[in-house]
Amino acid sequence: MRTSDYVRLLALAAIWGASFLFMRIAAPAFGSVNTTFLRVFFALIGLAVMLLLLRTPMQFHGKLKSAMVLGIINSGIPFLMYAIAALWLPAGYSAILNATTPLMGALIGFSFFNEQLTLRKWGGVMLGLIGIALITTTGELSLTGSFITGVLACLIATACYGCAGFLTRRWISERGGLDAKLVAFGSQLGAALFLLPFFGYTMVAGPVVNWAQPEVWASVLAVGFICTALAYLLYFRLIADIGPLRSLTVTFLIPPFGILWGYLVLGETLTGGFVMGGAIVCLAVWLVVSPARVVKPVSPQTER
């Protein structure tokens, strides 16, 4: 990986980490499903404006349908699953379970996409989970049906993330590629259309929402334009440059940034294991994304 790839990986983690801050402000006020749809909707608008300003030709070369399906798998379903999990799980539990994305990606890639994994990468994935557990503080919850439902919802979301990375490579990259801006736009279009019926149902049958809250709207706009539109541009570009498995390691870095933003903006207290956990996470990311050293065999002419 190049230095620019590491920089983009950190930037993506910082942006997605900030989404926890914005969702923490918006979801209680507007509702989880409403906030999720608005996030995708504003991301779609932001990407459309970006395409117009950059005068990007809307030429999908037969890949629009694939991009839209990717949006359902990589945005629509995961966002909805995390909204459901938020009804019963503390944010810490969701953050820990979100970190299983590279593990899910490794299992899915090994099982269905002929991805070769070394013991070093498996060790990095497991070490990353240990680091996330140290960073995140969670309370004790009884093993109820609601708790199990929340956990399963998070695992469905991470499985979708893991699968989407490989599908992006198969449907987009290996078929000649596509501008990352167009992939992001198509994916958010698919996610918005998928979430629209859920949004419509909550508007008709859900609780009354006080929409006149400027600070909440600011959070919704930020999570839509920055944490989704801009973030997915970086994400799909990373998949094209460094591959799906390495790109998925960004989930190891999201919780540290999420906790940091909460500390800086909301005055939340850092956990005792933050420094140690953060160091372990960095080591885990390095183990997973760094290439294995290839030992060249000694030629017969150089043997003594």
Rank of each mutant, 00 (worst) to 15 (best):
Y6P: 06
Y6D: 03
Y6R: 13
L12E: 02
L12Q: 01
A13E: 03
A13L: 05
G17V: 02
L21V: 06
R24T: 12
F30N: 12
M50Q: 08
L51M: 06
L51S: 08
P57H: 10
M58W: 08
G62H: 09
L64G: 10
I72F: 04
G76V: 00
I77T: 09
I77Y: 01
Y82C: 08
P90G: 12
N98V: 00
P102W: 12
I108S: 05
S111K: 10
S111G: 08
T118V: 10
G123R: 08
G124Q: 02
M126N: 13
G128V: 00
L129Y: 00
I130S: 12
G131W: 08
T137N: 14
T137W: 11
T138D: 12
T138K: 14
E140A: 12
E140L: 13
L143D: 14
S146C: 04
A157S: 10
C160Q: 05
G162R: 06
L167W: 13
R169I: 10
S173I: 14
S173M: 13
G176I: 12
F185G: 09
Q188V: 12
L193I: 11
L196R: 07
F199K: 09
G200W: 01
T202Q: 15
V204Y: 10
P207C: 06
L221V: 13
I226Y: 02
T228E: 04
R237N: 14
I239W: 04
I242S: 07
L245I: 12
L248A: 14
L248T: 09
T249C: 07
F252V: 07
F252K: 06
I254R: 00
P256E: 00
P256S: 00
L260R: 06
V265C: 10
V265G: 11
G267W: 09
E268I: 02
L270K: 04
F274C: 01
M276P: 08
A279N: 05
A279P: 08
V281L: 08
V285T: 13
V288N: 00
V289A: 05
S290T: 14
V298W: 04
P300V: 07
